[in-house]
Design a protein around this nucleic acid. Structure first.
Lengths: 233, 233
DNA sequence: CGCATTATTGAGCCGTCTCAATCGTTGTGG
DNA sequence: CCACAACGATTGAGACGGCTCAATAATGCG
């Protein structure tokens, strides 16, 4: 059983800034849930019955078309919020990319709780505004960037998301290895590219000495400065 | 001089649900401002000094790259909210596409006011969530749709935005004429296409009898059903 | 009326997609 | 422990869609 007091994302999730009593109340309406990689939490278009906080793992939000084309519209990391409060239907599917732990709330309970706790709503607002900014930045990538620019941008963003230390210590020459929690297909779905194009661009960056690919799922940034140049604006 | 009591978007903007006293207070910190078509209200990356409500007109939000490539990341219509509360910098440029009227607030004043008025923050949250949903839907278009699908989707969305009646009365065969408040270049910037491709797709839809183009800036939907089919998922 | 601006049309190219074959890794059963 | 299947990733060849560059046509404006 998890409780809010011992939660690892206690101070970064929307629950931050809440006092002991509030937290206890929130704890009574939420429950932990484990998800395996590939498991779906919400389906696009279904009734919005629940919302959640990510404790651990990475999940994708995606929209798709009848013919199977899919676009990943967001990636969700620990302490991020999932779901659509105050709305009737879930506008995107949510699927775990890695084994994950989430803290789930019935939407009805959460909505009520939020309305009664302005501090929580404020946190949620700030988070939603930040997410909107990030999403809009991604639109520039999808609408205007080349395949190489897209992959370079993606590798930079993901390396920063997975190691927050990189943000505060942006040594452009620093070597840096990390695991990509995505298959090539999923990278393509994020970037609006096919799997083959993604693969070719990986190979090209490696051939040019910008990155190395020690294994299928890991990347080493050899020349961050060059990678940034290739990411474009 | 405008005042909130007589404001035409009084009941649909974030100011809705506020009582007389609150509104009066809000009125003292905001002021009206007229913008000419093409006039810029905010610049990408500058300090976020102000936020605003749209009273009349259409504005674009856009991100761009050093080499001039531009992506429109949002369109703003009457009663919509503009700007980045609780943030240091404005993440996108804002430019009026038509002559517009907005209700402007110093961000510092607005932030303070919002924190003290949960009802306003709640409205703002709902609005931001809706906008995030819309933006994510647009990512599917940018990442996965063909030029024809993009233009068809765009014409449907804009016809609904400009005539709310169409939403509640979705007769698929209904003829419907409306003005596009955008140049071909701007349509391209919204859809992630070049001006030539946009023009060719307009011509194609017209040649196929799906739409008519009575003038440069206006469109008549002749066969909404077919247009929906061509918009894809 | 003449000029500037915006849109359309055309020809050719380039980047990404499609389709297909091969390679590499992982896991399984003999 | 090895052979083999299954899967994901890579690579190649060719097609196609949208882009670039250029010319022309419409529209708007002084």
């Amino acid at each position: 059983m998890g409780s809010c007091e011992t939660c690892v994302v206690r101070n970064t999730a929307i629950c931050a800034d809440m006092d002991g009593d509030e937290l206890e109340l929130l704890n009574t309406i939420g429950r932990r849930r484990n998800l395996e990689a590939g498991e779906q939490l919400l389906w696009e278009g279904e009734d919005a019955v629940l919302v959640a906080n990510v404790i651990d793992g990475v999940l994708k939000l995606s929209n798709s078309m009848e013919d199977g084309r899919e676009q990943i519209v967001g990636l969700v990391y620990p302490s991020d919020f999932i779901g659509r409060p105050f709305g009737a239907t879930t506008p995107y599917g949510v699927e775990a990319l890695t084994d994950s732990r989430v803290c789930v709330f019935a939407r009805r309970d959460f909505d009520k709780f939020a309305q009664e706790h302005p501090k929580l709503e404020h946190k949620l607002l700030e988070r939603t505004l930040t997410e909107l900014d990030r999403t809009r930045k991604w639109m520039l990538l999808l609408g205007r960037k080349s395949a190489e620019e897209r992959l370079a941008t993606f590798l930079l963003e993901i390396s920063q998301r997975l190691d927050p230390a990189t943000c505060s210590n942006p040594d452009p020459q620093a070597h840096f290895v990390f695991d990509i929690p995505f298959s090539r297909q999923q990278v393509g779905d994020v970037l609006g590219l096919t799997i083959e194009t993604v693969s070719r661009q990986f190979t090209k960056l490696k051939r040019d000495g910008v990155i190395d690919l020690p294994s299928r799922r890991s990347v080493e940034i050899l020349d961050r400065f060059e990678l940034e140049a290739r990411a474009g604006g």
